Amino acid sequence: MKRTAYLAECTVNYVHRWTTRVEGGGTGGRIPDKPRRRLLDAAKAGLVDVTPADFEQGWESGEATK
């Protein structure tokens, strides 16, 4: 989580919230837009191996934007 927080430019506690159910005060597995963009920028720079499809089903087919 530390590396993810570093690359997303946020705290480890914030990253932990992404893994917590909505009922428990988390995001239910969704990564907020700004840190998601930062992680994708890090991927473009070769710092991490992720793609948009790693974040949400449907990104590659365009379903996520509907």
Rank of each mutant, 00 (worst) to 15 (best):
Thr27Cys: 00
Lys34Asn: 04
Val15Cys: 02
Arg21Val: 07
Ala45Glu: 07
Tyr14Val: 09
Thr19Met: 03
Arg30Gly: 06
Pro32Phe: 02
Arg36Tyr: 05
Lys44His: 13
Ala8Gln: 07
Gly29His: 04
Cys10Asp: 05
Gly28Ile: 04
Ala64His: 12
Asp49Leu: 10
Lys34Tyr: 03
Trp59Gln: 10
Lys66Met: 04
Ala5Val: 05
Tyr14Trp: 14
Glu56Ile: 08
Gln57Cys: 07
Gly62Asp: 11
Phe55Tyr: 09
Lys44Asp: 12
Arg37Ala: 09
Arg38Trp: 00
Tyr14Thr: 11
Tyr14Pro: 01
Thr27Gly: 00
Lys34Pro: 00
Asp41Ser: 14
Val22Met: 03
Lys2Thr: 11
Asp33Pro: 01
Trp18Ser: 00
Thr65Asn: 09
Gly58Ala: 04
Thr27Lys: 01
Asp54Ile: 00
Val48Asp: 11
Pro35Arg: 00
Gly46Cys: 06
Lys66Ala: 05
Glu9Val: 10
Gly28Tyr: 02
Ala43Pro: 01
Asp49Met: 07
His16Lys: 09
Leu40Val: 11
Trp59Pro: 00
Arg36His: 05
Arg30Tyr: 05
Gly62Ile: 13
Asp49Tyr: 03
Arg21Ser: 14
Gly28Pro: 03
Lys2Gln: 06
Ala45Lys: 14
Trp59Asp: 02
Cys10Thr: 15
Pro35Asn: 00
Gly24Ser: 13
Asp41His: 14
Val12Gln: 11
Lys44Asn: 15
Arg30Asn: 02
Tyr14Cys: 12
Trp18Tyr: 11
Glu56His: 13
Glu63Trp: 14
Asn13His: 14
Gly24Thr: 14
Gly62Asn: 09
Lys34Trp: 07
Asn13Arg: 09
Met1Cys: 03
Ala53Phe: 04
Arg37Tyr: 08
Trp59Ala: 15
Gly28Cys: 08
Glu63Lys: 12
Ala64Cys: 10
Arg21Glu: 06
Gly24Met: 07
Pro35Val: 06
Ala8Cys: 04
Tyr14Asn: 14
Ala43Phe: 10
Leu47Asn: 15
His16Ala: 14
Asp41Glu: 12
Glu56Tyr: 12
Lys44Val: 06
Pro35Gly: 05
Asp33Asn: 02
Arg37Asp: 15
Gly24Glu: 15
Gly62Thr: 13
Tyr6His: 11
Ile31Asp: 00
Val22Lys: 02
Phe55Val: 08
Thr11Trp: 01
Gly26Thr: 12
Leu7Trp: 03
Lys66Ile: 05
Asp41Phe: 11
Glu56Phe: 13
Trp59Cys: 02
Val50Cys: 14
Lys44Cys: 05
Arg30Phe: 07
Ile31Tyr: 07
Val50Met: 10
Leu7Asn: 04
Pro52Tyr: 10
Leu47Gly: 02
Gly46Ser: 15
Gly28Arg: 11
Thr19Arg: 09
Pro52Phe: 10
Gly26Phe: 02
Val12Tyr: 14
Glu9Asp: 13
Ala64Met: 02
Ser61Arg: 03
Thr4Lys: 02
